Computed example of a mutant assay.
Amino acid sequence: MVNRKVAVLRADASSSIGVGHVMRSLSLGEALLDEGFGVELVSFELAPSLQSLATSCGVELVELACAPRSSEDAQFVLQRNANIVVVDGYEFSREFFAVLEASSTPFAVVDDNAETNAQTPSAVINQNPHASASMYAQLQGNPKLLLGLQYAMVRKEVREVAAMNLSSREGEVFVAMGGADFLGLTAPIVEALAETGLQIRVAVGHTNTQRVHIQKLADQLGNVTLIEQQDYVSSLASAHVAVLAAGSSLWEACAVGTPSIGLVVADNQFASANAAKKLGFTRVVDCRVRFNIDAVLNEVQSCILSGTSAMRGAALSTGVAHGASMVARELGAIA
């Protein structure tokens, strides 16, 4: 019996950094499993709901037993004896990467805006539409560059739902402000949209503290439904338009052909969201300095009134649904 290769994914999630790093790591993990890898996720104090999600994906969860994102962290990861390590996160120190670089284990970094402290990775994965080779010209060792939306690491469930070509429900708005929603935008968006008479389906993320409040709104308002995580993708796919935090959720909406309003809530989202806007499948509202609910309402109503067929066509033409599989195959060639 031939031992299968092992990929170790290193990512964290919290109310301050969100859950996006872990979510796209799990998306990649699913694809690596399909490629025959054994997959482990090393994480620090991961929320129970995310632990359960990792297990349901078939990914083995390993609790980090030292200070996160330090040189000791990297040594802990290397002790897993992986064939390849994939690191996703902005806060991993130079000391962390120096340990990986001194080893013989190939490693890849998942990056968004050339923010990695790695100097000699084996590969760089930047799934955003603004990604370019010039962003990584300073890296040494000629790393493999997996850049652009063709490498967007959307979940296996998203790929499966995209293949169903679900019909959209006229006048229904899907709302999801990411796993954490650290600006607390979910409730005010839902309250304002509910007053328009549109049907609202809202998802509350794994570390979002507003769940009880949103449930009360759903109980009080006949046109608001709080959905469970297992209904997230199908609800997104059947929405007329989606209001989303401008992270990886935009690529999931794109994969299922749902026009979106992307709310930029962090600096690292600005370039990718505006590049997506140029591609025609999303509109953008910048919420970093001031949250303007009227701007969100105007974009939703304008999108619905002007028709969404062009945005839907632009989304489907990108072909992002199979990005995780493409990344997994490329990493398989390196491991």
Rank of each mutant, 00 (worst) to 15 (best):
L145M: 08
L146M: 14
L146N: 04
L146V: 05
L147W: 15
L147C: 04
G148H: 05
Q150D: 14
Y151D: 05
A152N: 03
A152L: 10
M153P: 00
V154C: 08
V154S: 03
R159I: 00
E160Y: 10
V161I: 15
V161E: 05
V161F: 08
A162Q: 08
M164E: 14
N165I: 00
N165M: 05
L166T: 02
E172C: 02
V173Q: 06
A176N: 11
G178N: 09
G178T: 07
D181E: 11
F182M: 06
F182R: 07
G184V: 05
G184Y: 15
G184A: 09
L185N: 09
L185P: 01
I189E: 13
V190I: 05
V190A: 08
E191I: 05
A192R: 09
L198A: 12
L198I: 11
L198S: 12
I200A: 06
I200S: 09
I200T: 12
R201M: 01
V202S: 06
V202G: 09
V202T: 14
V202D: 13
V204F: 13
G205Q: 06
G205P: 15
H206S: 11
H206V: 01
H206G: 00
T207G: 03
T207R: 09
T209C: 03
T209V: 12
Q210H: 14
R211Y: 13
R211N: 04
V212K: 14
H213A: 14
Q215F: 09
L217V: 05
D219L: 13
D219Y: 09
Q220R: 11
Q220E: 15
Q220K: 12
Q220L: 13
L221S: 12
L221H: 11
L221T: 06
G222Q: 11
N223L: 06
N223I: 01
N223S: 11
T225M: 09
T225N: 08
I227Y: 09
E228W: 09
D231M: 07
Y232G: 02
V233W: 08
V233H: 08
V233I: 14
S234W: 00
S234M: 07
S234E: 15
S238W: 14
A239C: 03
V241S: 02
V241N: 02
V243G: 01
V243Q: 03
A245V: 01
A246W: 13
G247I: 02
G247N: 08
S248T: 11
S248F: 03
S249W: 06
L250W: 04
W251Q: 06
C254N: 08
A255D: 08
T258A: 00
P259F: 09
P259T: 01
P259E: 02
G262R: 02
G262Q: 05
L263Q: 07
V265R: 01
A266Q: 12
D267E: 15
Q269F: 08
Q269E: 10
A271C: 05
A273W: 10
A273Y: 07
